[in-house]
């Protein structure tokens, strides 16, 4: 599944957030401690400048100081850039797929069967689906309209064991992860912008768009 990408992105995002929080927290703690110290030591410490002359002298005396600060800043900037790129990539791959040509051919053929199989499952009224992710981490997102009293657990198991597993094999995507969004009580699903562009099956697949445009 898309786990590699998403876990990596989540870890990178979390690390960035924690780094930012730690930086801010460290500054805040320093400021607050200095304030407390100033209060404890009376007016002398309170009257000390925030940028002490000793700090300026230290930086001037040691030639490595500013290059080291620049290096750390570069590393932080690099981490930020990598984090931003990974976040964008993950967001794009949640909506689009990056499959190669042969995989697309297989998926296109399997998609028609998938739609037919899912609609044949008792309790399924309508279906919308999209294949996203990469070949190494593909993800099938299904939206299923079903009756309000449908047993969702059993329906999910039926979809997972039947149509999704068959699609996994037919499309030759053993790592495929499937996410099913149930719409209990919905008679039919509203089609989105992409699906409105053409009438055909399956309505929400990238693969199909190209086919429809060819026609």
């Amino acid at each position: 599944m898309d786990g590699g990408i998403r876990v990596g992105t989540a870890a990178a995002g979390g690390t960035l957030v924690l780094c930012a929080a730690a930086l801010l927290g460290a500054d805040a703690v320093e400021a607050v401690l200095a304030g407390v110290r100033a209060g404890a030591h009376g007016t002398r410490a309170a009257a000390d400048p925030v940028l002490a002359p000793s700090v300026v002298r230290y930086a001037a005396r040691h030639g490595w100081f500013w290059p080291a600060v620049a290096g750390v800043a570069e590393l932080v900037a690099l981490a930020g850039a990598v984090g931003a790129l990974r976040t964008v990539r993950a967001a794009v791959l949640r909506r689009r797929n990056a499959l190669d040509g042969p995989s697309r051919m297989l998926v296109r053929a399997a998609a028609i069967d998938l739609r037919r199989d899912v609609l044949a499952v008792p309790g399924v009224r309508d279906l919308r689906f999209a294949l996203t992710g990469t070949r190494r981490a593909p993800r099938l997102a299904l939206t299923v309209a079903c009756p309000a009293d449908a047993p969702l657990g059993a329906l999910l198991a039926a979809l997972g064991d039947g149509p999704v597993e068959r699609f996994r094999r037919a499309a030759d995507l053993p790592a495929l992860a499937a996410v099913v969004r149930f719409r209990p009580g919905a008679a039919a699903l509203r089609r989105g912008f992409v699906a409105r562009r053409r009438v055909g099956e399956p309505p929400h697949m990238d693969i199909q768009h190209r086919e429809d445009r060819c026609e």
């Binding site: 990178a12 995002g13 960035l16 957030v17 930012a20 800043a73 930020g80 984090g83 931003a84």
Partner: peptide, 18 residues
């Protein structure tokens, strides 16, 4: 969005400082 904004902020801020 939060992750992206923070990452961009860090990249731009730290890059400018460097």
């Amino acid at each position: 969005w939060l992750s992206l904004a923070l990452a961009l902020l860090l990249a731009l801020g730290a890059g400018t400082v460097a």
